[in-house]
Design a protein around this nucleic acid. Structure first.
Length: 457
RNA sequence: GCCGAUUUAGCUCAGCAGGUAGAGCAAGCGGCUGUUAACCGCUGGGUCGUAGGUUCAAGUCCUACAAUCGGCGCCA
C-alpha cells in the first residue's frame, strides 16, 4: 500500500507491506527509526526496527536506500506522528554507495538542477511536481467540464510564419552536406517533409481551424522557442495551454481566462495538502492565503492606454519611461501588478504595431483586441486576443507587416468560408506552476528543463 | 545577446596586508538516547573553475575563457 493512503486513513492493522526510499535513519541501542518515503505524498512513514533482530540489515541502510518492509501499523507512542510501522520483516531492495549526493540537509536548487535525475527525491521537488500534476489535471477538468474539445496540435510544423519567435529546425539532412539548389541554397524540397520544417512555437493557428468547425477547443502540449533567453521565466521547451473559443469576443475571452486561472488556484488549495503546506511555510510564505484571495477576487482589467497613464502619473522612476506606443517593460508590469493593483491585471487593446498580425483591429484603427494577463513576480502569464475574422482587413495586415499572404492560404480560407468571431489565449503552464509554488526559477518547476546549453537529462 | 556578481572538501560557505587551506553539514568508525534534518567523540577527504601573466612567493593581484546565479531584452 502507498504511504499516502496509509497516513490519510491513519490505518491501524496487523499486517501491511510498504516499499520506498529511506529519507533518514536514526539508530538507538535497541530500536532504529527509519523515515520512509514512497513519493506518493510529502510525509514520510516512520518505521521502527528491532536492532537485535535485524542488525545486519539495518547497518546496510542509509539515506536513499530502497527497502521493502512489512509489519504492523500501530498508534505511535511518541509525538510527531500519529501512526508508525512496527517492522516484522525488512528487505533492502537497492543499497546506496557513500557518494550518494542527496543528504538529509538543505541543498541549493542550483546543485539539485545538476542532478535532475535525483532531485525529485528532495522534499521541495516532490512537492512541486505533485502540485504540477494537480494543475495539469485541473486544466483538463476545467475545459472538459465546459465542453471544450482537447486538440492535439502538431509538434512539427512547416508554417514558417507563426511569428512567435525563433524556431528549431527539424530535418533528416546530413548537416555537413545537405542537398543544394542551383543557387547553392539548401534544397528543402528534398528534405523529409518536402519543405523546411520546425518545432511548433504555438498551436493557435491550428486551434482556430477546430474552433471554426467543432467549436470550442484547447491544446495542451509542448512548445518550443529557440530564443537565446537566459532568464528565470523562459524555457526553450515548455508546455502551453491554448484554448480557442468560437463566437467569442475579447471580453468573453478574458472571462474564460479569469475563470480558468481561478479554477487552477482553487484546485491547488483544495488538493495541495501537505505539499502546499510545505510550500506555504518554506518556499513562498503566505501563498495559500494569496491563492484563496485570488480565487475569489475579480482580476483588474485596464486598457493599455490606461496602463500608460497610470505609469506616467505614478511618480516612479522607471529605467524605461513609459510612453504610448512602446511595449510594457518588466518594471512596468511589476509596478502594475505589485504596486498599483497588488494582484492579477489584464491589460487590453495594445497598439497594433507591437502585436501580431492575427489580432483583431479595433475601430480606432490604432489598437488591436489583445489582452495580456500579468501576475505579480512572474509577469505575463497569458497572452491572448480576439482574432481578426474579416478577410480584407486580415489580408491588409499581413501585407502591411511584409508577410506573404500565400504562406497563410489555409488561415485565410477560414475567413473566406463562413468566418465567425472567435478568440483565444495561451497560458504558459510552467509560469502558473511557478506562481503557485513560488519557485523563483522556472527551470525548477519542469521535470527536465531545456534552455540554452541545458539538455542533459 | 547585454550588464553585474560568484566559482575554495560530497554540500553550504569562511579564508581579509599576497607567505604553502578552515568550519558546519555529509561520509566512515565508536558511544548514548523512543528517536524526529537526533546528540557526543574520533577519522578520512581539497592540483582553491580553466589557461596564461606579475612576484622570491598567488586561493588571495592582472588578463582571457568557461560555468552558475541575479537583472534586462525576446515572450508563455
Amino acid at each position: 500500500m502507498r504511504i499516502k493512503e496509509i497516513l490519510g486513513k491513519k490505518l491501524i492493522t496487523d499486517s501491511i507491506t510498504v516499499s520506498g526510499w529511506v529519507r533518514t535513519k536514526r539508530t538507538s541501542k535497541s530500536v532504529t527509526f527509519i523515515e520512509l518515503n514512497d513519493g506518493s505524498c510529502f510525509s514520510n512513514l516512520q518505521a521502527t526496527v528491532d536492532n537485535t533482530e535485524f542488525e545486519e540489515t539495518v547497518s546496510g541502510i542509509s539515506t536513499g536506500t530502497s527497502v521493502e518492509m512489512s509489519g504492523a501499523l500501530i498508534p505511535s507512542p511518541a509525538s510527531g506522528q500519529d501512526i508508525e510501522l512496527q517492522v516484522k520483516n525488512i528487505k533492502i531492495l537497492g543499497g546506496v554507495s557513500p557518494d550518494y549526493p542527496l543528504q538529509k540537509k538543505r541543498h541549493s536548487f542550483e546543485f539539485l538542477r545538476d542532478i535532475a535525475h535525483l532531485r525529485p527525491r528532495a522534499n521541495t521537488f516532490g512537492a512541486v511536481f505533485r502540485i504540477r500534476n494537480i494543475l495539469a489535471y485541473s486544466v483538463h477538468e476545467f475545459f472538459q467540464e465546459r465542453g471544450y474539445v482537447y486538440l492535439n496540435s502538431p509538434i512539427v510544423t512547416t508554417s514558417d510564419c507563426e511569428g512567435a519567435g525563433e524556431m528549431f529546425n527539424v530535418s533528416t539532412f546530413n548537416m555537413e552536406n545537405p542537398p543544394r539548389t542551383d543557387k547553392n541554397e539548401i534544397d528543402w524540397t528534398k528534405d523529409f517533409f518536402g519543405k523546411k520544417a520546425s518545432l511548433t512555437v504555438s498551436g493557435q493557428l491550428e486551434a482556430e481551424i477546430f474552433a471554426t468547425s467543432i467549436g470550442n477547443c484547447y491544446t495542451f502540449g509542448p512548445t518550443f522557442r529557440a530564443e537565446n533567453s537566459n532568464t528565470s521565466r523562459h524555457l526553450a521547451e515548455f508546455w502551453m495551454i491554448e484554448p480557442e473559443i468560437a463566437f467569442a469576443n475579447l471580453k468573453e475571452d478574458m472571462d474564460v481566462a479569469e475563470a480558468f486561472v481561478r479554477h487552477l488556484f482553487k484546485k491547488v488549495i483544495e488538493k495541495g495538502g501537505d505539499d502546499l503546506d510545505f510550500i506555504n511555510k518554506r518556499i513562498s510564505q503566505g501563498i495559500t492565503d494569496l491563492l484563496e484571495k485570488l480565487s475569489k477576487a475579480d482580476f483588474t482589467r485596464i486598457t493599455y492606454t490606461e496602463a500608460i497613464e497610470i505609469l506616467e502619473k505614478s511618480g516612479e522612476k522607471f529605467e524605461y519611461p513609459p510612453s504610448w506606443g512602446i511595449d510594457l517593460q518588466s518594471e512596468h508590469e511589476r509596478y502594475l501588478t505589485e504596486k498599483a493593483f497588488d494582484g492579477p491585471v489584464f491589460v487590453t487593446d495594445y497598439p497594433k504595431d507591437i502585436k501580431a498580425f492575427y489580432m483583431r483591429m479595433n475601430d480606432d484603427g490604432k489598437t488591436v483586441a489583445a489582452m495580456d494577463l500579468l501576475l505579480p513576480r512572474v509577469g505575463e502569464i497569458i497572452g491572448g486576443s480576439q482574432r481578426e475574422e474579416r478577410y480584407d482587413i486580415l489580408l491588409d495586415r499581413i501585407k502591411q507587416l511584409g508577410l506573404n499572404p500565400e504562406d497563410y492560404w489555409w488561415y485565410m480560407d477560414l475567413r473566406k468560408y463562413g468566418t465567425v468571431e472567435h478568440s483565444g489565449f495561451g497560458l504558459g503552464f510552467e509560469r502558473i506552476v511557478q506562481f503557485v509554488t513560488g519557485m523563483s526559477n522556472i527551470r525548477d518547476v519542469i521535470p527536465f528543463p531545456r534552455a540554452p546549453g541545458l539538455a542533459e537529462f
